[in-house]
Amino acid sequence: MISVSSAILLFVILPALSLYGYLVMLPSPPLFASVCSPSDPHSLAHQRSSTSPNEPRASQQSNGYASASPYPRVLVVVAHPDDECMFFGPTITALTSSNADKVFLLCLSSGNYDGLGSIRKKELVDSASELGISPSHVTVLEDSRIQDHPHDMWDADIVAEAIRLQVSHHNIDVIVTFDQFGITNHPNHRSAFHGVRKLIRSGAVPDPTSDQAQATTASSVLAFSLDSISLARKYTSVLDLIPTTLLAWLRSQPQISTDEGPNSRYSGQPLVVVAPPWHVQKGFRAMFRHRSQLVWFRYLYLASSRYMLINELHQIK
């Protein structure tokens, strides 16, 4: 008779590892590539170029409306230094492996709750470099109205305005942030989501190259949130691929991403990003850059969290 440990090995661990190996080997185009493909009627670039049919093409291109590049400009919005590698590592490394020049990171606070803000800002820049984001593409806000605190919700209008400035300045196509539960239910994480959603629903995001005529709209910027899952699944590492894949199948097979990203045609389905081992290693190295935060339970997190390997992204509407 087979033992319980043998059954777990044969029917849970080995299938999960096999599935991981299979997904990692799947060829796929860059993450979010469809949003900047002007030939794809589902893409953001096509929608932008279609919104102003009488606008000169040169003007459209200068604003990114009809960019021929398959790589969108992506802004990852986090609440604190270390969020980027603890939760968004698979997404960021998938993006930077394709085109790091178009990936930007906005941290809404310096994480100064314990008085370590200046240290943590430097650690964030070092961590982002490990993930492939240039230091010049990292912005850390120091706003007295949105400070790191475990019990404070931030004003969504303030957060939305801070994000709007970054979207406008960098001509962003896609925003990635937390969902309404913030992975850990941290109010600062949840505030990031509410700020992004308010921006998306608000209307206009002015283009920085013009005061009037040439303006993008928030509705033409896609925003995605990182899915929060139950505690039972959160710390199962690679084993969570089994329920993740099953749920993906039940949702009519959303795009599944590995090293280079999901299927290029965005259909509104969730995007599942699976980090290959070499990207997971980058996530580990990035976390070790946050030396001020390396308390004992962080090591347990690194060893067991599915967010080091898997991200599931849902569109914010």
Results as ranks from 00 to 15, higher is better:
residue 53 P to A: 12
residue 72 P to W: 09
residue 119 I to Y: 13
residue 204 A to E: 13
residue 238 V to F: 15
residue 148 D to A: 01
residue 168 S to C: 00
residue 222 L to M: 13
residue 281 Q to P: 00
residue 175 I to C: 00
residue 174 V to D: 00
residue 136 S to W: 03
residue 264 S to E: 13
residue 41 P to T: 07
residue 150 P to V: 06
residue 88 F to V: 03
residue 261 G to L: 08
residue 174 V to H: 00
residue 49 S to I: 09
residue 106 L to R: 02
residue 30 P to L: 05
residue 76 V to G: 06
residue 305 S to Q: 09
residue 302 L to Y: 09
residue 205 V to Q: 05
residue 302 L to K: 05
residue 243 P to V: 07
residue 300 L to T: 11
residue 62 S to G: 14
residue 148 D to L: 02
residue 217 T to R: 12
residue 270 P to Q: 07
residue 194 H to Y: 15
residue 207 D to N: 15
residue 12 V to N: 06
residue 144 S to V: 07
residue 113 Y to A: 14
residue 50 S to E: 14
residue 149 H to G: 01
residue 230 S to T: 11
residue 96 T to S: 03
residue 68 A to S: 15
residue 57 R to C: 11
residue 284 F to D: 03
residue 60 Q to M: 15
residue 69 S to M: 11
residue 140 V to C: 08
residue 260 E to V: 00
residue 269 Q to I: 02
residue 257 S to A: 15
residue 289 R to N: 12
residue 197 R to T: 05
residue 154 W to D: 04
residue 18 S to W: 12
residue 236 T to M: 15
residue 94 A to P: 03
residue 240 D to S: 15
residue 127 S to C: 10
residue 230 S to M: 07
residue 57 R to M: 12
residue 119 I to P: 04
residue 115 G to H: 11
residue 184 T to P: 03
residue 189 H to I: 07
residue 226 L to I: 03
residue 133 I to Y: 03
residue 155 D to S: 05
residue 222 L to H: 12
residue 142 E to K: 04
residue 293 Q to F: 11
residue 291 R to W: 14
residue 210 S to I: 06
residue 30 P to N: 09
residue 40 D to H: 07
residue 217 T to E: 12
residue 1 M to C: 09
residue 80 H to P: 11
residue 90 P to L: 04
residue 188 N to W: 03
residue 271 L to N: 04
residue 54 N to D: 15
residue 149 H to Y: 06
residue 222 L to T: 08
residue 131 L to N: 05
residue 133 I to R: 02
residue 297 F to P: 14
residue 156 A to K: 05
residue 193 F to C: 02
residue 98 S to A: 15
residue 189 H to R: 06
